[in-house]
Design a protein around this nucleic acid. Structure first.
Lengths: 346, 346
DNA sequence: AATATGGTTGCAAATGTTTTCATAAAAAAA
DNA sequence: TTTTTTTATGAAAACATTTGCAACCATATT
């Protein structure tokens, strides 16, 4: 207590307890190695002095920093919140803390953030998706830090990944609409440059329609950012046209929710007059009226699996041997899709 | 390059560049202090060796760790995502990274997380709300770390805070319904223990109704967690009763969105037969059909103000002098509220 | 009673960086 | 050219901790 102004350090605690700094360190890191009596003395001194150990100093000994770096495109919409929450719960149960950064869908920024997180000597690095700056690939090749991509899975991926196959997601969504008889479908997607998830979904959807004999022209491919507001207004203008499509395939549920609201605003009955399908099954999609049909991406499962795998790799030190895994998608049929009028009439 | 296995350190880079470690350090931290020629040599060596500076080591010199600890209740719904995103953008522009943790509305957990973040020697600590474990108050009293509460503001707060006055939020919402002639209103709120925001809103709403002569009985006070799904089903059962209220005042927009869907499901016309008001004006509320009337909490403004204030305090070292500020609320009238039938008939 | 055994503890080295201080080099002034 | 001033660089101490090694002490064994 003599030294109140500057933060108490380990040697201050040691003096207070009448032991050496080494013993205090052992009480914190290997409590079983110190006699119960001494331990209690030290614990009391820690309590009394308000000592908080300095992880920066411990991290210098090759000890774990107990942080995991996570870089996501954005926190601003629900897309990644759920997976990050599940991941965080998993790893924080083992004492790890998240260093979180977001790049706003700019992979150049992502690279800079990755460097920054490595400066903090994170024990692992988690990225979203498989599209990355070449510098990122160089970094994770050079640095002895386990690195995992989440959200996506691809067999030919350049790095370990835990997530879903976005091509499959696009295909499932498209085939559902095809099965319902929709021939004239509009695709509502964000910019696909630097966004492999959106790109894969779109390509697969286009392929599926082509295979079914229904080519989707560029006039039916609408670009819109991940924003309910912008999706809604974009959909309003599409749906206002006399030749409006019979169904909307949306890159994710944020866009699809906007589409549902657009239809409601225009008084277009869903699904009787218009079918809408999303991808993701985000929170809220199941509760909407009409409830949104979507290709479910199990964010919880991805977050938990990723967390467990990261923990395993950190604890065992098998940095090179991160196991990828593919999480299954599932079509969740709800009220926003139905048989096309064309089919019904035919 | 000789030393490829272990991470290159500053002295390895120094040797490679033919200078001392001190010079390398200066190139990184005070580039203007070193001659352009030497600087280029060093930068080349850094590039060649793939050196990444170790912040843990720098943090030991009382240098900033360049991290800011943030503890929120949850990431799982939109509530805090927006404010954190704005805060993050503000501080990351100055090179700071977020250490993010979530406590799931358990203040005991929040205390443990606060300790953990302090172990990492964050340059500042940001919490949500003004209700905290006594240990948290002790910590921020003892530790020389600037600490700020966001989301709430109260003049008599025990710590600096930047946010809105939740009593005012509750009052504004209530008075809007009162002005529309609603006498029989149900309050849909989460558990208010350990949640000062919900508590303040509810108390103020109850007071406002009482002042207007309309006492709200306990039978009209419904408990429901922050979940669209649970709010929807709770509202369905309330609205199914023959004596259903003429308006719902929801603690936040997550609950209010559930309420709107519940009305839609039951075919109750909003706002003709039922008014619904939320608090927060979260993303999506403006786009719903009917669009949600809400008391706008400007998450962006809060995040940005908080970020700027934290930066100011860190850079100037005036840890004790964090300035609180109150961010204004605003009633956003949209389609989900209207004149009560009682009033219309009367 | 002397010796071996095994668990506790302290000493000191090591970790990677920043910074102060002194020195060397360059630039400016004489 | 010499001296003075300024600027650039290096050597070494400091930061807070962990850990290998050695010393110690108490207990168990002979």
């Amino acid at each position: 207590m003599e030294n109140q102004l500057s933060k108490p350090d380990i040697v201050f605690v040691a003096k207070l307890a009448g032991v050496s700094a080494a013993t205090v360190s052992r009480v914190i890191n290997h409590p079983d190695q110190v006699r119960p009596g001494t331990r209690r003395k030290v614990e009391l001194a820690i309590e009394k002095s308000g000592y908080i150990r300095n992880r920066a100093a411990s991290a210098m000994h090759g000890k774990r920093s107990a942080t995991i770096g996570v870089i996501i495109p954005t926190l601003a919409n629900t897309i990644f919140a759920e997976v990050i929450q599940a991941f965080n719960e998993t790893v924080s149960a083992q004492g790890y803390t998240l260093l979180l950064a977001s790049h706003g869908y700019d992979l150049e920024v992502e690279y800079k953030l990755a460097r920054k997180l490595l400066e903090h000597r994170v024990d692992a690095l988690v990225l979203v998706g498989l599209d990355h700056h070449s510098g990122v690939f160089r970094l994770i090749g050079e640095q002895p830090v386990p690195c995992l991509a989440i959200w996506n899975h691809a067999v030919d991926a350049a790095m370990p990944c835990i997530g879903v196959d976005n091509r499959e997601a696009g295909r499932i969504a498209a085939e559902h609409l095809i099965a319902l008889g929709h021939q004239d479908v509009a695709l509502i997607f964000p910019e696909t440059i630097e966004n492999d998830r959106a790109r894969d979904r779109m390509m697969a959807a286009l392929d599926a329609f082509r295979a079914s004999g229904a080519e989707i022209g560029t006039g039916r491919q609408i670009r819109v950012p991940y924003s309910v507001a912008q999706a809604k207004s974009a959909c309003i203008s599409i749906l206002n046209r006399p030749d409006r499509p019979s169904a909307l395939l949306c890159c994710n549920d944020v866009i699809a929710q906007g589409a549902v609201y657009a239809a409601a605003r225009l008084g277009i009955r869903v699904p009787a007059e218009l079918s809408i399908i999303g991808i993701g099954d985000f929170v809220g999609s199941a509760q909407m009226e009409p409830a949104l049909t979507s290709v479910r991406i199990p964010a919880q499962s991805i977050g938990i699996s990723a967390g467990q795998e990261i923990l395993r790799v950190i604890e065992t030190g098998e940095h090179a041997a991160i196991r990828s895994s593919r999480i299954d998608l599932e079509l969740v049929m709800r009220g926003s899709t139905g048989i096309s009028q064309q089919l019904r009439q035919g």
